[in-house]
Write a protein that binds this DNA or RNA. Structure first.
Lengths: 155, 155
DNA sequence: ACGTCGGAGTTGACGTGTCAATTCCCGGAG
DNA sequence: CTCCGGGAATTGACACGTCAACTCCGACGT
């Protein structure tokens, strides 16, 4: 990897900072574009979609809260609020008492299937097709390197 | 499900989708890590920081709302709410009547300077130092390519 | 059996982002 | 001068995320 450049902890150079800003602003814009497309096409937020996806992939279209939180990688309380809102809209249903699990309703499953077609097309259009094969591969490596830095103890 | 023959609008392949998910989840995690560091070190949100940065760079530490909205790339109403909150905390001040502009207070300028040292160190640590020189360059190219796709008419 | 301990799940309060009004101000037409 | 149109800026209502309580329930030791 990058070896120690002279000073231990000095600021990024102007070029590095420019790259950083371009990178973060663009990924932000991409995220928000995808989210508003999803909203416009299917009346779902990205969070809604993440939950529907996790439940759709799950056995019996049902998961316990903790497994679901794990699958989407969220805090418990965030999930609880999210599931509450989705339950009000009829996309999911809580099973039995306190800790039985969350299940996709038929409506939720149908909504997800409809949404995912459009969503995947958008992903292809704005990400996959926007990059060359080399760039796509590089994007994967960059993500892995960033993830490694995040997971490093001092991260 | 996926037909081989239809070229134009088919779904991403499994590999492409994996890369996408890894990419988006990692950039998300990076963003949220930076944001919580900033919060812990300086009691500023990323939005606060963006506004302070734009004003700090501005002539006279002051900008009209529309110029500021432009600089940070936000909706007007989002900016208005944000400035209102920051004004309550004494970081910025609205000038005169309705549309004169927003200025950095001394407190805001000092807070920004203090925050930026720590923030830039974190950026260096989690982004610049996490990537090889080649990866950093590739990140810039990827951002440019994604930006181009976003800006394209049909985007 | 009884207590109590701890983790899972929920709730409430609050800061934040978005959308749809609404207000304010300015410049031109009558 | 007065009225009107339109853009800039603000506001309100609501969806969302986070943090800190709080509730529930089952496991364990005695």
């Amino acid at each position: 990897m990058t070896q120690e450049r002279s000073g231990a902890r000095r600021s990024p150079t102007g070029d590095q900072l420019r790259t950083w800003r371009e990178f973060v602003e663009t990924t932000d814009a991409l995220r928000s574009r995808l989210s508003s497309r999803l909203q416009a096409e299917s009346s779902l937020s990205s969070s809604d979609y993440a939950v529907l996806l996790a439940l759709h992939d799950a056995d019996g279209h049902c998961l316990r809260s903790s497994a679901l939180a794990d699958a989407v990688g969220w805090e418990r309380s965030r999930l609880s609020h999210q599931v509450g809102r989705m339950e009000r809209r009829g996309l999911v249903a809580r099973q039995g008492s306190r800790s039985a699990g969350v299940a996709l309703t038929d409506d939720g499953a149908a909504t997800f299937r409809r949404a995912s077609v459009a969503h995947l097309r958008t992903v292809r259009h704005l990400f996959v097709d926007a990059l060359t094969d080399d760039q796509l591969a590089a994007a994967g490596e960059i993500a892995a390197a960033l993830r490694a830095a995040l997971d490093r103890p001092g991260g």
